[in-house]
Simulated assay, not measured.
Amino acid sequence: MSSPKYAPKSFAKVPADFGKRNEIPWNDADSLLDSDRLAASILQHRYAYKIRSRIAELGMSLATYSAQTAQTYDRNLKILGGNAVMRLDFVTEAERLLGHILNGGDGLAASSPGDHRTRQIPSGTPNVVRVVHGGSDCNAGIGHLG
């Protein structure tokens, strides 16, 4: 895998806080490209914080969680710390293993650990994608993180 052109934590005023505190201050973007990367970094930070918090809620260590994922401990540490760019499948894997990553009053579907079957979303809800997984239809919401 190639190296990212930026580290998401580089947009944080205190890079060491990336993924570790709920709210952190951010640097300003100097260009349109940096503006896009800043927005992506903020999203990654929010997911990283939710994933770290959920691991702690479940009484797990990052090493224990990593043993269940497709990534190594070191790779998870880089992603959650903002040293590497997070992919969407990282988030969906965390949702499957930990649950409650994609919910929280933000209109996204909730699930329990291991529940990758049906996530109910009210009909007529905007920004909904239908996914087929293992022969079952699943609803996966797309929206704003809370």
Rank of each mutant, 00 (worst) to 15 (best):
I79A: 03
A110F: 01
L58F: 02
L108S: 07
F90Y: 14
E57R: 10
G107R: 02
R119K: 14
A94R: 00
N22L: 12
R37Q: 14
A29G: 06
L32R: 08
N127Q: 14
S53T: 15
R46E: 13
R75C: 11
R130G: 00
Q44G: 07
T92R: 10
L102T: 12
D34W: 04
D36P: 00
G114R: 03
D74H: 01
E23I: 10
A110G: 12
G99L: 10
A94N: 02
L102V: 07
A67M: 09
A70E: 11
G134L: 08
R96W: 07
V128D: 01
D106N: 15
P122G: 05
D34V: 04
K9T: 00
S2I: 07
L33I: 14
R46K: 15
I101T: 07
Y65G: 05
P4R: 10
E57T: 14
Y49C: 03
A7S: 11
V128Q: 07
A63Y: 03
D28Q: 13
G59V: 15
V91S: 00
Q68Y: 00
R21P: 00
H100D: 15
N103L: 01
I121G: 02
L102Q: 08
S66Q: 06
H116T: 13
N22M: 09
R52P: 04
K78W: 04
D17M: 12
S61M: 03
V131C: 06
D74R: 10
D28Y: 01
G99S: 11
D115M: 04
D28C: 06
H116R: 06
P8G: 05
W26Q: 06
V129K: 14
L97F: 03
A40E: 14
M1C: 11
A63N: 08
I79P: 01
F11R: 00
S10D: 12
L88K: 11
D137S: 11
Q120N: 13
S10V: 07
E57S: 12
R37A: 00
D34H: 10
H144T: 04
H144V: 11
A7Y: 08
T69D: 02
G81S: 14
T125Y: 06
Y65V: 09
G135Q: 08
V85A: 06
A67I: 04
D30W: 00
F90W: 12
I51M: 07
N27A: 11
P126K: 08
P25E: 15
R119V: 11
Q68T: 09
D74N: 13
A94F: 03
N83M: 07
L38T: 02
D28K: 13
P4H: 09
Y73E: 09
V128R: 02
D34Q: 14
Y47T: 01
I51D: 04
T125G: 03
A110W: 01
